[in-house]
Design a protein around this nucleic acid. Structure first.
Length: 168
DNA sequence: CCCTGATTCGC
DNA sequence: GCGAATCAGG
């Protein structure tokens, strides 16, 4: 997957809107959050208004040997839920928020209220008390309540509200 | 354990 | 230029 003008534009847009690198990576598809961050820096648009944490000097450290030839692991670690939740790559309208339920919550993640903990998404699906009710259960939380995927949906109205307030 | 962005450097 | 690996932090 290469950085076409289109993808770069989308990257710029989402980054300026405050989405995290991993969220943008999921939105773009075919790239990791590292790739997104790397691109952001190369484009020179890193500092996003607020200087998150004081940019620590970050000292160098000797790199261990890349473990021979096959060095490019497909990064099995982390974020399977987000990857699964991300639908087909060619999204006709990236602006549209995806369906919060259909085909986006892996069966393996779904859980009851008893399975919820500080790391699980609390996005509810269905009617509480009914047989098929469950929680998203994804462990890709970005806030205190929802996974990265559902947070985008849950907090969208707030973002819009703030944007209008700022524009006023 | 989950996540964040920042940085380095082999490719 | 790209991005995995790593770091430092929340």
């Amino acid at each position: 997957m290469n950085w076409t003008d289109e993808r770069v534009e989308l990257l710029k847009k989402l980054w300026s809107e405050g989405l995290s690198a991993s969220q943008i990576a999921a939105e773009l598809g075919g790239v990791t959050r590292n790739a997104v961050i790397g691109k952001v820096h190369r484009l020179g648009l890193s500092g996003r208004a607020k200087a998150m944490t004081a940019a620590a000097p970050r000292q160098r450290k000797p790199r261990p040997a890349p473990a021979s030839t096959a060095s490019a692991r497909p990064m099995v670690h982390g974020n399977t839920a987000l990857a699964t939740a991300t639908r087909v790559m060619a999204e006709p309208e990236p602006q549209e928020l995806p369906d919060p339920v259909a085909n986006v919550i892996p069966m393996a993640e779904r859980c009851t209220i008893l399975d919820l903990n500080e790391f699980t998404c609390r996005w509810p699906v269905g009617d509480p008390g009914k047989e098929d009710f469950f929680y998203c259960g994804s462990r890709t939380k970005i806030g205190t309540t929802y996974c990265a995927f559902h947070a985008r949906i849950a907090y969208q109205p707030v973002q819009d509200r703030n944007r209008r307030r700022l524009a006023r």
